[in-house]
Amino acid sequence: MTKEDREKQGLKPVSCPVGFSWANLRAELRAIWESNVKVWKIELAYPISFLRECIQPLVMLLPFLLYGLVLIGGRYSEALQGLLETASPVDVVTYIFTGYMVMGFIGTAIWAMGFSIRREQWFGTLESIYVTPTSRLSLVLGVALHSTLHQCISVSIEFLVIYAVFGLGLKIQGILPALTIFALMMFALYGFGVLISALALFLKEGWIVAEGLYSILMILSPGAYPLAVLPNVVRQVSGVFPTGPAMIGMRSLLMDGYPPQAIGTIFLHLLALDAAWILFGILVYYLVDIYIRRRGSLGKY
């Protein structure tokens, strides 16, 4: 289109910020925010569905709590004390709660982020998004932001109900450092989520891979049991994912009587996982992005 054509149609030239500049960063942050707002709007258009999804983590947690209480006929486990090497028997309610409040965020990485691009395909809007001068990752990160906020609501509901019904032995002073560990875990999970979204774009029937990875991560994360019950090889594999060290670190900071861990080592472990998962996720995403655009299979599903 020539300059004269544009003037005839009354179109104004738009300059899009590119490269590593503040203007581009601001534009991408705006895209992330708008993507987050869009998902909230869609979600809140179905209030019953929203409500159900908010209490879903609680529904998933309750059987683990009740089962745990029936198993030991109370709320303190001596066998768990032996495994964790604590001075006194461990309160299983607090132990399970601190584990499962983190588990829900695995869903953020796998389902929300992983299927953000796929969902645009279903809606028929993926190609339109792809031609906009913004990074595709901003869309994925916008969905991640929404899902993280949504999950925080779910965890708050979980906390209120469990605290009111069972009571929880938590250390208030540990909340801030635990949140730092949580943030580090989330960065690594975001990297993992970017990887899943690339797989979902590439595999088309990626839900099987996503569900498979989700199930495996649920076993590898010490949500309701310590890693000591897993075979040694599986325990080593667990260290590749951020949920294991994050849960151990958070429990150490939040739970009364939980053996203190080397928090510095956990921080370093999580920082290394952040760098590895983010770089690996982005690399795979860009390779898949180039591949599917070359094949022309972007809109196919």
Binding site: Y67, V70, A79, L83, V92, I96, M218, A224
Partner: peptide
């Protein structure tokens, strides 16, 4: 499987008299 691992961790075996 998480339920089985939880059971093993909480009771220290595969049988629970309390259960």
């Amino acid at each position: 499987i998480p339920f089985l691992l939880q059971g093993q961790a909480f009771v220290g075996g595969l049988q629970s008299p309390e259960f």
